[in-house]
Amino acid sequence: MRDDRLSQFFLAILGVVALGFVLKVAKGVILPLVVAWLLYFIFAPVVRVMAKRKIPTFISTTVVLMVFIGVCFGGALFLNGRVQALIEAFPRYQARFAELLIEYSQSYNLPKYVVSNIDPGPMIGKYLLSLSTFFVGFVSNLILVVIFLVFLLSSAPYFERKIEMAFSKKHSRKVIHLLHTISLQIGRYLALQFMISAITGVLVWLALKSIGVDFSITWGALAFVLNFIPTIGSIVASVPPVVLSFVQFHPQMTPVVITALALFGIQQVMGNLIAPKIMGENLNLSPIVILLSLLFWGWLWGVTGAILSIPIASAIKIVCENVEQLKFIGVLMGSSRYMGKRPDATL
Results as ranks from 00 to 15, higher is better:
residue 143 I to L: 04
residue 32 P to M: 09
residue 216 S to E: 12
residue 122 P to F: 12
residue 17 V to N: 00
residue 266 I to R: 07
residue 241 P to Y: 07
residue 95 A to G: 14
residue 99 E to W: 06
residue 303 V to S: 03
residue 297 W to A: 04
residue 310 I to Y: 01
residue 105 S to V: 13
residue 129 L to E: 03
residue 149 L to N: 02
residue 317 K to R: 13
residue 135 F to E: 00
residue 199 I to P: 08
residue 238 S to C: 11
residue 211 I to P: 04
residue 236 V to I: 13
residue 252 Q to G: 06
residue 330 G to P: 15
residue 309 S to C: 13
residue 214 D to F: 09
residue 5 R to P: 03
residue 131 L to K: 03
residue 84 Q to D: 10
residue 34 V to R: 03
residue 9 F to Q: 11
residue 254 T to P: 01
residue 114 V to R: 03
residue 294 L to W: 01
residue 285 L to N: 11
residue 44 A to S: 15
residue 78 F to S: 05
residue 274 I to T: 11
residue 116 S to Q: 14
residue 129 L to M: 02
residue 260 A to W: 00
residue 191 A to R: 15
residue 193 Q to L: 14
residue 271 G to V: 10
residue 226 L to Y: 05
residue 341 K to C: 02
residue 82 R to M: 08
residue 171 H to C: 02
residue 43 F to D: 04
residue 41 F to R: 11
residue 317 K to L: 02
residue 66 M to D: 00
residue 252 Q to H: 13
residue 154 S to V: 02
residue 66 M to L: 07
residue 213 V to I: 06
residue 186 I to H: 14
residue 41 F to P: 11
residue 23 L to F: 12
residue 201 G to M: 14
residue 167 F to R: 02
residue 201 G to P: 14
residue 204 V to G: 12
residue 172 S to F: 00
residue 279 M to T: 11
residue 6 L to V: 12
residue 196 I to S: 09
residue 271 G to D: 10
residue 272 N to L: 14
residue 162 K to Q: 08
residue 246 F to M: 10
residue 285 L to H: 05
residue 220 G to K: 08
residue 132 S to M: 02
residue 108 Y to P: 00
residue 26 A to S: 12
residue 263 L to N: 09
residue 314 S to V: 09
residue 75 G to L: 05
residue 280 G to H: 09
residue 61 T to W: 05
residue 168 S to A: 09
residue 87 I to H: 08
residue 327 K to Q: 07
residue 168 S to Y: 07
residue 345 A to V: 03
residue 322 N to H: 02
residue 328 F to C: 10
residue 147 I to S: 00
residue 294 L to V: 03
residue 338 Y to M: 13
residue 93 Y to G: 09
residue 101 L to H: 13
residue 268 Q to N: 08
residue 243 V to F: 15
residue 141 N to T: 00
residue 42 I to K: 10
residue 128 L to S: 09
residue 302 G to T: 06
residue 157 P to N: 01
residue 257 V to R: 11
residue 77 L to F: 04
residue 179 L to H: 14
residue 118 I to G: 00
residue 72 C to A: 05
residue 113 Y to V: 12
residue 259 T to I: 01
residue 251 P to G: 08
residue 271 G to E: 11
residue 336 S to L: 10
residue 199 I to F: 14
residue 208 L to N: 10
residue 262 A to T: 06
residue 166 A to C: 04
residue 160 E to D: 05
residue 72 C to S: 09
residue 110 L to I: 08
residue 99 E to N: 13
residue 326 L to R: 03
residue 77 L to Y: 08
residue 256 V to Y: 09
residue 96 R to A: 15
residue 9 F to N: 14
residue 130 S to K: 05
residue 165 M to Y: 06
residue 174 K to F: 03
residue 316 I to F: 10
residue 68 F to R: 00
residue 342 R to A: 02
residue 188 R to K: 15
residue 131 L to M: 01
residue 227 N to W: 00
residue 220 G to D: 04
residue 279 M to K: 09
